[in-house]
Amino acid sequence: MTRSSPASSGPWTPRIVAFFCNWCTYTAADLAGVSRMKHASNARIIRLMCSGRVDPQFVIDALTKGADGVLIGGCHPNDCHYAEGNYKCLRRFQMLKRMVADLGIEPDRLRLEWISAAEGEKVKRVVNEMTETLTALGPLGIPEKFHEWDREMEHFAQRVAAQEAASGASGCAEHAPQPRTPEPAHA
């Protein structure tokens, strides 16, 4: 797989998960030498046989696991190795953009491009552009959001631990009584 290790230190830069069709975009990326791209370290490329194989679940899974954007690359219209895969992809993509917008995710975090095997330059351009777009949008940070959402259940767990410690049900020292910080009223 053509990929470089993520920038592990330094300022935040976007993470792009790229689903590339084996017959065109992936070949283009390979020939163009993605590793020599300016923003190579931002894109993690996943090779699929066809853009028609890109299940919307893959795209959203990538976002909920920490990607800031998803790029899909397929063959040009009428060039799909499996005839209609790229059209199926395009149609799903149109609805997916609407759905993510409704769920508070900027549709510009998703991009679909037709890139033939000969268009190595286009791979570079698209990844660079997308890196810029995502840099401007900032981190999506869904895993952090999940964590933050679930913190609203923490004070309850602390209270139970405190009660148990008080009643001697749990001798665990880590479960020392914690003051319950009541949430402000529903105001």
């Binding site: 028609g52 299940d55 919307p56 679940q57 959203i60 899974d61 219209p77 059209y87 199926k88 992809c89 395009l90 149609r91 799903r92 149109q94 609805m95 997916l96 759905m99």
Partner: peptide
């Protein structure tokens, strides 16, 4: 199926007639 909504969306939308 991991995500019921995305799964049905995928199968319905892929089969829209226009290109």
């Amino acid at each position: 199926v991991r995500d019921q909504g995305l799964k049905i969306m995928s199968s319905l939308c892929a089969n829209v007639a226009p290109k």
